[in-house]
Design a protein around this nucleic acid. Structure first.
Lengths: 249, 249
DNA sequence: TCAAAAGTGTTTGACTTACACCCATGA
DNA sequence: TCATGGGTGTAAGTCAAACACTTTTGA
């Protein structure tokens, strides 16, 4: 097996550090912040407001990690700056290198998805520009790909996790929960089957509250069981940390 | 929504490029190269051979992307250098930042998984050191996490894709296919149910070949249908490219 | 003829789908 | 009393799991 250079590993490197001269590309972290509004799935975009003249193009909120910062923390910061709110769910998507040879540079783009619940306490739209994922303005191809991929992943995870909870307020009606599924999947679902399936999971608890919003029977309010997180992260448990400690197996 | 600095976007930046002075962390790509040998799942490790003195510690094969290089290509290069063979399957796993403040640097670690078929033409072990994933030597904590995560993901994908094919030679017996599943899942499977399930997918074709390797009935040889790749990548279709072009929705 | 692995069906329970009506409420 | 959405049950089909014996071969 060919031995590759292992920078930072051999002792001589430590004596003549070259980290600065060999420093790598810019790290460009982009967050797809999703929330729900009625039957629409909205994504947060930064940039000039419609009609406003600005040098900044419209696109996903971005950030650059501080030195040594855990990437999830960078993503949380980006989400908070973009919306003024704390996201309910965060997940890394994908990383790619982007060659910007026309500009004489390249960078590493790390995509993230974040979910933000709607609800009375969290009204999106005041601090930023939200756009329906099915009607995006002109954005970069990469931003579009990241958004498409986020929606794809969200859709897939809906099938085997309860990730949908992060798009709802703490209490909600079963109809609202169904709407989340229908919005993301893009197709109507059978009411009776949906309710049976959801209740069968056992992670829903009916509260004694009700919602009345029309001249019809009020709907029962439900919650997700506090710490039943069946999001099955399937996300590594890596603690970003020094890479020198060794462990035997 | 707070506007963040968008380096490389505003015109003034283009006039006074700062890419060099703001250059980021080293990008450190690590590949978990997996293959199968009998009933063991093996991972390729680089470093000194047992008993050999060397400054290089044992760990996953690594590489650093060329400027603007597509990360998948970097990973392929790492796999080829480490084994002398072309991998059959490649998938990006996860990215994290690693603070090496003790060494005054930080880096971005991108994990990859690659699968290598066993078989007469591809005997692993000649060019490198292969280690059973259930009996790893002392390696860095990060390498261990990446390996654990790769196995976790492989196990999960076995359930809803035909990813197992990339660990087998072109023709194989149903018993071998079952062994792949049992090895990765770590539990025995019922022969009849397994065969029925596999054949029901319709992506297996029986060849007219047979394998006889003992004083018992020979086994029929099968192939996967040429271009039925049900690996369901669920991987973005991003073409790493210039990030300036815009597309309207 | 024996040992050893290949190959083969059926039954059961669980889950998914399709489908239509009554209930509670405010106007 | 009527319009509106909330709420409920059943039958059919599909899928997964458990389970044991016969077949073919080389020694």
């Amino acid at each position: 097996m060919a031995t590759q250079p292992q920078p930072g590993r051999s002792p001589d490197r430590r004596m003549a550090p070259v980290a600065e001269s060999m420093a790598g590309p810019e790290v460009d972290l982009r967050v797809v912040l999703l929330t729900r509004d009625q039957d629409r799935l909205l994504v947060a975009l930064t940039g000039r407001e419609p009609g406003e003249a600005s040098a900044h193009a419209i696109g996903l909120p971005r950030g650059r990690p501080e030195i040594g910062q855990v990437l999830d923390d960078t993503a949380r910061g980006v989400a908070r700056r973009a919306t003024g709110l704390a996201e309910q769910y965060l997940e890394q998507l994908y990383t790619m290198s982007v060659d910007q040879s026309t500009r004489g540079s390249w960078k590493i783009v790390v995509g993230y998805m974040a979910l933000l619940s709607s609800g009375p306490d969290r009204v999106p739209g005041v601090t930023g520009r939200w756009s329906d994922v099915n009607g995006l303005p002109a954005i970069s191809r990469i931003d579009r790909s990241v958004i498409d991929y986020a929606v794809l992943r969200l859709r897939a995870k809906l099938g085997y996790t309860n990730i949908g909870r992060y798009l709802l307020p703490q209490t909600f009606t079963l109809r609202e929960l169904q709407s989340v599924y229908e919005t993301i999947l893009g197709q109507p679902l059978d009411k009776r089957n949906f309710r049976r399936r959801m209740l069968a999971t056992g992670i829903l608890v009916q509260t004694d509250g009700q919602r009345r919003d029309g001249s019809h029977r009020p709907a029962a309010l439900y919650q997700f069981q506090a710490e039943e997180d069946r999001t099955t992260y399937l996300t590594p448990t890596w603690t970003d940390s020094d890479d020198t400690r060794r462990s035997a197996g």
